[in-house]
Design a protein around this nucleic acid. Structure first.
Length: 324
DNA sequence: AAGATTTGACCACA
DNA sequence: TGTGGTCAAATCTT
């Protein structure tokens, strides 16, 4: 029964995201429709200087995709709906892996051990373990390099708004520093399978290589944040236990660290956080809504998920029907 | 007392 | 068989 709750929560989250895109597309459509479409030729500073008809077609396609997706979600509530690990989860620094051979239920089925099996048969426990291990392997994976500024005295990157719980540390062959393993604090409560590994760079101790696996299905960004009790009590903990206003957090993050994405061609590109959190800028990511088959916007969702923890709470203009 | 971290052990995979 | 990733009991912190 709890599993069902989780599933429906995921569906809601997905619906939420879909609706966001849907409404945005609607607005765009309205704008395109109302304004006297600017002359397609000259002084349009927009990078996407296309004929109005093309715009409309694109918008229709977008809307159609959203509608279909939403419809599908609505009527197929019983089959597992995956919020994340789908083959089209592409992240800016994805370093392979991550593509499930079968989109089966990666995240949809909660671990039975969570509420059943009360420490009973070790055999079933083993099977759960194996199953989850396989499951995890199919999660999308990407990494970032996070640089801290030494003068701030931080020893670990405080790189996102998610709550991570350390579950292991390992000495890695050939690495000076041990690798730390974190998973989402809400793993059991929200069935959130996001994990990350933090490895301090050998060559530059101010750089932490953070490898994320899986995306958050929890809503940490809007869960009641614990009061900022004692600032910087510990150091090696790369995880803030805060989930305050993303903007505030981003501002502070911007001053503290930079993120280098790994795996891009120009690896020395240093990425700084933008001023506003999320970048729900479909214009910059679309590239090709025309035949991308409704996956692009999900990519965006995943794109910012790990670093800034886009919460589903940001200014929402969604119909209350999906609000819970 | 509850939640987080540490750490040794176990497991899968290359 | 060695290594990386995870588990879980013990320990620590709040």
């Amino acid at each position: 029964m709890e599993g069902k709750d989780m599933l429906s929560w995921e569906q809601k989250t997905l619906l939420n995201e879909l609706l966001l895109g849907f409404v945005a597309a609607k607005k765009l459509q309205a704008r395109l429709g109302e304004g006297p479409s600017p002359s397609p030729s000259s002084s349009s500073s927009s990078p996407v200087a296309v004929a109005p008809e093309t715009n409309e077609i694109l918008v229709k396609q977008i809307l159609s995709s959203y509608e279909k997706s939403l419809l599908m979600l609505n009527w197929s509530s019983s089959p597992p709906v995956q919020l994340i690990p789908t083959p089209f989860t592409v992240l800016p620094v994805a370093n392979s892996g991550g593509v499930p051979e079968s989109p089966g239920s990666i995240n949809g089925s909660p671990r039975s051990e969570d509420f059943a099996d009360g420490g009973g048969s070790s055999e079933s426990h083993r099977q759960d373990y194996i199953f989850n291990s396989k499951k995890r392997k199919m999660l999308p994976k990407w990494s970032e390099k996070v640089r801290i500024s030494p003068e701030r005295g931080l020893e670990g990157p405080q790189d996102d708004v998610f709550n991570w719980r350390k579950y292991g540390q390992k000495d890695i062959l050939g690495a000076k520093f041990p690798r730390s393993y974190y998973r989402c604090t809400h793993r059991s409560s929200h069935n959130c399978w996001a994990t990350k590994q933090v490895q301090r760079s050998d060559s530059d101790p101010t750089v932490f290589e953070v490898t994320y696996r899986g995306t958050h299905t929890c809503r940490q960004a809007i869960t009641p944040p614990p009061p900022p009790a004692s600032p910087e009590k510990q150091d090696t903990r790369p995880t803030p236990t805060i989930a305050q206003k993303p903007n505030d957090l981003l501002e502070s993050l911007k001053t503290n660290l930079t993120v280098q994405t790994v795996g891009l061609d120009n690896a020395d590109d240093v990425f700084s956080f933008p001023n506003t959190p999320p970048f729900y800028d479909y214009g910059t990511i679309n590239g090709d809504f025309g035949h991308v088959e409704s996956s692009s916007f999900l990519d965006v969702v995943d794109w910012f998920n790990p670093t800034v923890g886009i919460d589903t709470s940001f200014p929402t203009f969604l119909p209350e029907s999906i609000y819970y």
